[in-house]
Amino acid sequence: MKPVRPTTEDYVRVAMITLACGLLTAAGVSPGNAAGCAFEPQGEGRVRTVIDARSFRLEDGREVRLAGIEPAATEKSNDSAALAAIIGGREVSLRGEDDTPDRYGRQIAFVYLAPSEMPVQGQLLAQGEALAAGDVTDKDCAAVLATAEASAREARKGFWADPAAIKNAESPGDILTGIGRFTVVEGRVLSVRQAGATTYLNFGRNWTRDFAVTIPRRMLAPFEAAGIVLKSLENRRIRVRGFIEAQRGPRIDVLRVGQIELVGGK
């Protein structure tokens, strides 16, 4: 039998990191299997204080921020209760690709409680208390986080219990209420246009009012490497995540391939 060559659609589906959650679930991989986030050890310690929804301080003074997630964009987005319930006063181990502190002096890491193989990030996602940031470049780890988030979304847990958790791309006014917050928006791409160094995924005809996704030129190579032809997203339904900006209409700037996922087959 002659082998069938993968189509562009096949590449898009495989490359969308968050879509991998459906493939993993179908293959029998559960949120509890976190082998994909087994990075190098970065130390350990006891949690002294939970600072906010995704950061805490150890007894030795180190401040740690959870990698790969963002707080859910709700009135309780800065609520530290969920994180405190998991790690408050506990011994934790840290893992990551790099232990260089961020500009605020925080260590960015995946955090574990022994003997669990699921990072704390996965637990928060599975409870609907956080959103996958879409910025994890390790595909296996990104898929683990996406699977955990999908389980909460399908069960309508936590943040996902709100019918308006995912913003409608056809409601720019509603999206604009979340300026500066990490938000998930879903809709059908009306057109894909290039203007200077930016590619626009337009969800409406009025560019001064409607929602759009902006993709800088430096991201074209990563999308191409992932087998994704941006023009092929035209007339496709996608889910995009990122921080809402107001540039006439509401915008999300895509800086990682994992910020975009194809929804369904069409």
Rank of each mutant, 00 (worst) to 15 (best):
S80H: 04
S80D: 09
A81L: 04
A81E: 10
A81D: 12
A82V: 04
A82P: 14
A82L: 03
L83F: 02
L83D: 06
A84V: 02
A85G: 04
A85P: 09
I86E: 03
I86Y: 04
I86A: 01
I86C: 09
I87Q: 00
G89D: 02
R90Y: 03
E91H: 09
V92P: 09
L94N: 00
L94E: 01
R95G: 02
R95W: 00
G96Y: 06
G96N: 02
G96E: 11
D98G: 00
D98L: 00
D99Y: 02
P101R: 08
P101M: 05
P101T: 02
P101L: 10
R103T: 12
R103K: 11
R103W: 08
R103S: 07
Y104A: 10
G105I: 01
G105L: 07
G105V: 03
R106W: 08
R106S: 06
R106T: 05
Q107W: 12
I108S: 07
I108L: 15
A109R: 05
F110K: 03
F110A: 05
V111T: 06
L113D: 08
A114N: 10
P115E: 07
P115N: 01
P115Q: 03
S116I: 04
M118K: 06
M118F: 14
M118C: 13
V120Y: 13
V120I: 15
V120D: 09
Q121C: 10
Q121L: 07
Q123C: 00
Q123F: 01
L124H: 01
L124C: 14
L124I: 11
L124N: 07
A126H: 02
A126L: 07
A126M: 10
Q127P: 08
Q127V: 13
G128K: 00
E129N: 06
A130C: 15
L131N: 12
L131I: 08
A132F: 06
A133Q: 04
A133W: 01
A133K: 03
A133L: 02
G134Y: 12
T137W: 13
D138R: 06
D138G: 12
K139G: 11
K139Q: 10
K139N: 10
K139A: 13
D140C: 07
D140L: 15
C141P: 08
C141G: 11
C141T: 01
A142F: 01
A142V: 11
A143Q: 14
A143I: 10
A143P: 07
V144L: 14
V144K: 12
A146K: 07
A146M: 12
T147F: 00
A148W: 06
A148P: 11
E149H: 12
A150W: 12
A150R: 07
S151M: 13
S151W: 12
A152Q: 09
E154G: 14
E154V: 15
A155C: 01
R156L: 10
R156A: 13
K157C: 02
K157E: 08
K157P: 10
F159R: 02
W160E: 11
A161D: 06
A161T: 08
D162H: 00
P163T: 12
A164Q: 05
A165K: 02
A165S: 11
I166S: 08
I166K: 13
K167T: 05
K167Q: 14
K167M: 01
N168C: 11
N168E: 07
